[in-house]
Amino acid sequence: DEEIEKWIETLLKRNISLRVNGKDLEIGSEEFKEWVEKFIKEV
């Protein structure tokens, strides 16, 4: 979905790490990609 890709790009540009389930996810890491894929499937 384009919306999500733009959102991810924005996050990448800002180099933010997300806190997911109490863990810091490094943007661009494998864990982050897995989380994004799960997130996309749920939406």
Rank of each mutant, 00 (worst) to 15 (best):
G22L: 08
W7G: 00
E3V: 10
E2R: 13
I27S: 03
E2Y: 13
F39P: 00
K13S: 11
I8L: 12
K38Y: 11
N21I: 06
K38I: 05
L25D: 02
V36W: 09
G22V: 03
E3C: 15
I16S: 06
K13F: 10
E37F: 15
W7F: 08
E30W: 12
D1C: 15
K38D: 04
N15D: 03
E9G: 05
S29R: 03
E42N: 11
N21Q: 08
W7A: 02
I27W: 07
E3K: 10
D1Q: 11
K13V: 08
W35G: 00
V20W: 07
K23C: 14
S29I: 07
I4K: 04
I40G: 01
E5P: 07
W7D: 00
K23A: 06
K6S: 10
I27M: 05
E2L: 12
E42C: 15
E42Y: 15
N15M: 15
V20H: 04
D24A: 09
S17W: 11
E26Y: 09
F39S: 01
K41V: 04
V36E: 00
I8S: 01
V20Y: 06
R19G: 02
L12H: 01
K13Q: 08
W7M: 06
E3Y: 14
E34K: 14
L25K: 02
K33Y: 13
L18T: 00
F39T: 03
I8N: 00
E42I: 13
I4E: 02
S17A: 09
N15F: 15
V43K: 07
R14T: 08
K38L: 07
F39L: 10
F32V: 03
E9A: 10
I16Y: 01
G28N: 07
V36C: 14
N21P: 02
F32E: 00
S29H: 03
E37H: 13
E37G: 12
E5F: 14
K41T: 06
K13H: 05
N21L: 11
D1Y: 13
K13L: 13
K33M: 11
E2N: 10
N21G: 04
L18E: 00
E30K: 12
S29G: 05
R19H: 06
V43G: 05
V36S: 01
K33H: 10
I16D: 02
E37I: 15
L11M: 06
D24L: 14
S29Y: 06
I40P: 00
K41Y: 04
V43M: 13
E34V: 13
E26P: 08
G28Q: 03
I27Q: 03
K6A: 09
L11R: 00
